[in-house]
Amino acid sequence: MKDWKIVALAAEASMKEALAVIDKGAMQIALVVDGEEHLLGTVTDGDIRRALLRGEPLDTPVSRFMSANPYTGLLEEDEDIWQRTMQRYSLKHLPLLDSTGRVRGLATYVPPAEPRRPNWVVLMAGGLGSRLGPLTQHQPKPLLKVGEKPILETIIENFLAQGFYRFYICINYKGQMIRDYFGDGSRWDAEITYVEENRRMGTAGALSLLPEAPQLPLIVMNGDLLTKVDFVRLLQFHRRNQAAATLCVREHSHTVPYGVVEMDGYAVTGLVEKPTQRYYVNAGIYVLNPDVLGRIPGDSYYDMPTLLNDLLAGRQPVFSFPLREYWIDIGRMGDFEQAQTDYGEIWEGP
Rank of each mutant, 00 (worst) to 15 (best):
K2I: 01
W4Y: 01
A10R: 14
A13V: 02
K16I: 12
E17Q: 15
E17D: 05
L19C: 10
Q28A: 13
A30R: 08
L31T: 09
L31V: 08
L31Q: 04
V33H: 09
L40R: 13
G41K: 02
G41W: 07
T42Y: 03
D47H: 02
D47Y: 00
D47I: 06
L52Y: 02
L53G: 00
G55A: 05
L58E: 10
T60V: 11
V62D: 08
D78K: 15
D78S: 14
D80S: 12
W82F: 02
W82I: 03
R84M: 02
T85D: 04
T85W: 01
T85L: 14
Q87G: 14
R88E: 08
Y89I: 11
S90E: 15
L91D: 02
K92V: 13
D98N: 15
G101A: 00
R104C: 03
G105S: 03
A107I: 00
P112G: 01
A113N: 07
R117Y: 01
N119H: 02
W120M: 04
W120R: 01
V121R: 06
G127W: 00
G129H: 03
S130M: 10
R131F: 09
L132N: 07
L135Q: 09
Q137M: 06
Q139F: 01
Q139P: 08
Q139N: 09
K141L: 15
L143E: 08
K145Y: 11
E148W: 06
I151V: 05
E153K: 13
I155Y: 06
E157Y: 03
L160W: 04
A161F: 02
F167Q: 05
I171K: 07
Y173K: 05
I178E: 10
G183A: 12
D184T: 09
S186Q: 13
R187S: 15
D189A: 14
I192M: 11
G202L: 06
A204L: 06
A204T: 01
L210Y: 09
P211M: 11
Q215W: 03
M221R: 09
G223F: 07
L225R: 09
T227G: 07
F231R: 04
R233S: 12
L234H: 04
L234R: 03
L234N: 04
Q236C: 11
R239L: 14
R239G: 03
T246I: 12
L247M: 13
R250G: 07
E251H: 10
H254S: 12
H254I: 14
T255G: 00
V256F: 01
V260E: 05
M263W: 03
V268E: 10
L271D: 08
P275N: 05
R278K: 15
V281Q: 07
A283Q: 04
G284F: 01
G284L: 03
I285T: 11
V287M: 10
L288R: 00
P290V: 00
V292Y: 02
L293H: 08
R295Q: 13
R295I: 11
R295A: 13
Y301L: 08
Y302S: 00
P305L: 14
L308G: 01
A313W: 11
V318N: 13
V318C: 09
E325A: 07
Y326T: 00
W327P: 05
D329L: 11
G331V: 12
M333A: 02
D335S: 06
E337D: 14
D342I: 05
D342S: 07
E345H: 04
I346Q: 06
